[in-house]
Amino acid sequence: MIKLAIYGKGGIGKSTVSCNVSAAMAKKGLRVMQIGCDPKADSTSLLRGGERIPTVLQVTREKGNALALEDVIYDGAFGVKCVEAGGPVPGLGCAGRGIINALETLEKKGAFELCKPDVVIYDVLGDVVCGGFSMPMRKGYADKVFVVTSGEKMSVYAAANICMAIDNFKGRGYASLGGIILNRRGVEDERSAAETLAADFGSSVIADIDRCEEIPAAEKAGKTVAELFAGSRADEQLSCTAQAILDAFGGAL
């Protein structure tokens, strides 16, 4: 089983990349589980026809310890297992603690033993603002982190902060940086901005996705690009991204 986490600035395309990469991997025949770690709970919506699923925290609140895995794990496109951690409504509670609680619940209930995934993808909220959002990087969770960025200054800045956090945690046996995923916005010198960032952290740009029409169109339909635009350039790039991620694990599968 390989476990990875997708981080990056808010709105940069983490969930889009996660869902499409999950789909591409599942299409190759891998068993994939995607866990949204964002109180918005919209990580897996592209895999579920745009529809929301009950979150781990919501069900925990309703059922307490009687929560069953079937209440929180749902089949998505290509058989991807979809989970949303969930969290409080904006402005209340503690979202970070929520992520910790939800991930511990999944572990305790034996979600991985039940689904036996080959690949686990954690799609984590934009900024690593507190301990809860570094939970998916911890020992026993993701082994590698992939950071999504465009060439825009703020995006690179956020990505650098995430890479720095990963660096800080080196002594703790946390996840290592697996690589940078460039999701283009069409600004100037985009590739070189991403490459400079990668080089600063001894990493590389492992994937390059163009800004395109297929992604928003598929989003509108609540579908992955692989379902709606199979064979398109976007589909190809996303599938290359999936392969590059698998390659970063050095053929562990």
Partner: peptide, 13 residues
């Protein structure tokens, strides 16, 4: 618990 201190990681350090 609320702030999510990782005791395994702290113990390793």
């Amino acid at each position: 618990m609320m702030t999510g201190v990782d005791f395994d990681a702290v113990a390793a350090e």
